[in-house]
């Protein structure tokens, strides 16, 4: 096993980490974007013939959604909601599966159904999409009830249209789906509901959650990746020089 391959492997193994840092920086304006990627390298012995010195670095990564809060951005819009703590909102993904999100920029689509900003249908606590009455003012209460007010009868109490499917994910690991929505770690590729934790789900209406990306941290990480990349390339170069020295030694005169 040539040492130059070990050096090259170390360059390859941080490639994904660098792309992930760039992805987090790119999503610094995405509503309620969550960080998820954790990266480390581990040394693994390569089995096979030869001396027991064949070790290669291998990336060890974890991709669990961190529900650390993003900044609260007040918009004053009644259908914008900010989810407190580890609350997540159930939506219907485009393939019909149930998935979760932190996006709280709710809208009403052309069929009068409640959707999030990406167009996925918001689910009611019965597990079906929420249809809202036409011509009524909508508000969302802090416990997730969708309330409709009749503008002609301001003194009349609000009628509850539905309740949002909110779950407390403080005790459940969520992973990312290909479409960017979240699903419980045990139900990969199938989506579906999970049992919420003990903390009651809570919302703040009139605000949305900004991206949870910490720009300073990501820039430092980028810098670190940059320098460690240079160090690893330097190592490849050293091995190249070493190999050249070996070749020139046995060259025929």
């Amino acid at each position: 096993m040539k040492a130059i391959y070990t050096a090259m492997a170390s360059v390859r193994q941080i490639e994904i980490a660098r792309a992930q840092s760039a992805n987090q920086l790119a999503n610094v304006s995405t509503v309620a974007f969550k960080q998820s990627y954790q990266h480390a390298t581990d040394s693994v012995k390569i089995a096979g013939a030869g001396f027991a010195t064949s070790y290669q670095p291998i990336a060890v990564s974890e991709d669990i959604i961190s529900l650390a809060a993003g900044p609260m951005q007040a918009t004053g819009r009644k259908l914008d909601v900010y989810m407190v703590g580890a609350t997540v909102l159930g939506v219907q993904a485009s393939n019909g599966q149930m998935a979760f999100t932190r996006r709280g920029d709710l809208n009403v689509n052309e069929l009068g159904q409640l959707t999030i900003g990406t167009g996925d249908l918001v689910m009611g606590d019965g597990g079906s999409p929420i249809s809202v009455p036409l011509g009524q003012t909508l508000e969302i209460s802090s416990d997730g009830a969708v309330l409709a007010f009749d503008p002609n009868a301001p003194e009349a109490p609000a009628s509850e249209v539905a309740r949002l499917l909110l779950r407390d994910a403080s005790a459940t690991s969520l992973v990312r789906r290909l479409d960017g929505l979240f699903e419980p770690a045990g139900q990969v590729n199938v989506g579906g509901d999970f049992d919420g934790g003990a903390v009651p789900a809570e919302l703040v209406s009139g605000a949305i959650e900004g991206s949870a990306v910490n720009v300073a941290e990501m820039l430092v990480k980028t810098m670190e990746n940059n320098r460690s990349f240079e160090a690893r390339i330097r190592l490849v170069k050293e091995f190249k020089d070493l190999d050249q020295a070996g070749t020139s030694m046995i060259r025929m005169a």
Binding site: I16, A19, Q20, A22, N23, Q24, A26, N27, S36, Y37, S61, E62, D63, I64, S173, V175, R176, R177, L178, A185, V188
Partner: peptide, 8 residues
């Protein structure tokens, strides 16, 4: 867990 690489 899997590894989902973001593309921007």
């Amino acid at each position: 867990t899997g590894l989902m690489m973001g593309t921007g």
